[in-house]
């Protein structure tokens, strides 16, 4: 039997904790904490998406909030049209079915990421960061200036969208949906990175010239990664809109892109469960220290500084050491 690495133990413990915490909260009749766990899981999923591009692909995207927000808006707009029986651009009916919404969210984000990626991936370093930020801000201002869907005020989702015959309004069931989605996104990331494509992506990150001299063009590998990463993040966005029953342009803002980056760095760049660890710490700090002071980000800054200075593998790196193959 294969011996589990320390990182595997840490990852398993993290998953177990994340799964058990809302169960305990539900038994204690504390739905607030179940919803808090759902928030952690959804934000972790968005960061898993970013981690694929940033951590594994070395693509420092400062515009992933665009995909998170697009996923949210797809859920919001679909629910809006389903609620009042109207049609999107006069022809497409709304839907309150999660699978339909997720599919559309992922496709819309995929198309947007293809367009953004084709342009931005021709640059590198700070230019790539700035172009992804610029595109995200363009989408942000577009959402603000679109009064049909709430403009700056955002859009309410009056009834949580449905999934088969499940009671999605039950916090624990909704948590289960989010948890399953997070695990699926981690599984997909793991499969990608365990494939030849994943190895080629690592090569493109480490030395794209050396990769090219082996006959592999780095650009399509990076573009595919960027698109897949955006798709995962958009799925999280759709769930986030359902969790809050609300979608607003703030989901698209650069602050949110920054938060996702902080979560990935905090948890461990390029570590499979790094975004999960980062999201747990981030949301708990925001909730509990944020309850005492509105300057909770000062403490987040201190933790981030310590992690960057003393544990460049993030929290997972600090606990599990250098990454290694199972």
């Amino acid at each position: 039997m294969r011996k589990l690495t320390r990182e595997s133990w840490i990852n398993s413990s993290l998953v177990l904790l994340l799964a058990l915490a809302p169960l305990c909260a539900s038994l204690l009749d504390e739905p607030y904490y179940v919803n808090l766990a759902s928030r952690v899981v959804i934000i972790a999923m968005a960061a898993v998406g970013l981690n694929l591009a940033l951590g594994f692909g070395g693509l420092i995207s400062f515009g992933h909030a665009a995909f998170f927000g697009l996923g949210g808006y797809v859920a919001g707009v679909a629910a809006y049209h389903a609620f009042d029986g109207s049609y999107f651009i006069g022809v497409i009916p709304g839907s309150d079915q999660m699978p339909v919404i997720w599919l559309v969210a992922v496709l819309v984000a995929g198309l947007a990421a293809t367009f953004i990626g084709v342009i931005s991936l021709r640059t590198q370093g700070v230019y790539f960061i700035m172009i992804t930020l610029a595109f995200a801000q363009m989408i942000y201002y577009f959402a603000i200036s679109f009064p049909t869907y709430g403009g700056e005020d955002g859009l309410s989702i009056y009834v949580r969208n449905s999934l088969f015959s499940l009671d999605t309004s039950d916090p624990l069931i909704f948590f289960g949906i989010c948890f399953f989605s997070l695990m699926l996104s981690i599984f997909v990331t793991r499969r990608i990175m365990g494939s030849r494509f994943g190895a080629a992506l690592t090569m493109a990150r480490l030395n794209d010239i050396r990769l090219a001299t082996s006959g592999v063009e780095p650009f399509p590998i990076r573009l595919t990664t960027f698109v897949l990463s955006a798709m995962i993040t958009s799925g999280a966005g759709a769930l986030f809109a359902d969790l809050n029953g609300f979608v607003s342009p703030s989901m698209l803002s650069w602050h949110h892109s920054g938060e996702l980056m902080v979560i990935v760095i905090l948890g461990g760049v390029g570590r499979l469960f790094g975004p999960v660890a980062g999201a747990v710490v981030f949301v708990l700090l925001e909730t509990f220290i944020g309850g005492f002071t509105q300057h909770w980000q000062f403490f987040l800054g201190l933790i981030l500084l310590s992690v960057v200075l003393f544990a460049n593998g993030g929290l997972i790196g600090l606990l599990a050491g250098r990454p290694r193959h199972d």
């Binding site: 030849r196 190895a199 690592t202 480490l206 030395n207 050396r210 001299t213 006959g215 592999v216």
Partner: peptide, 25 residues
């Protein structure tokens, strides 16, 4: 045209097998 560049250029954070198969034709 296959190149073995100067200075043992492998991809450090990949396994031997991954180094070999990733760009195989």
């Amino acid at each position: 045209i296959g190149l073995v560049p100067e200075g043992r250029r492998c991809f450090a954070s990949l396994t031997v097998q991954e180094n070999l198969i990733a760009t195989a034709r």
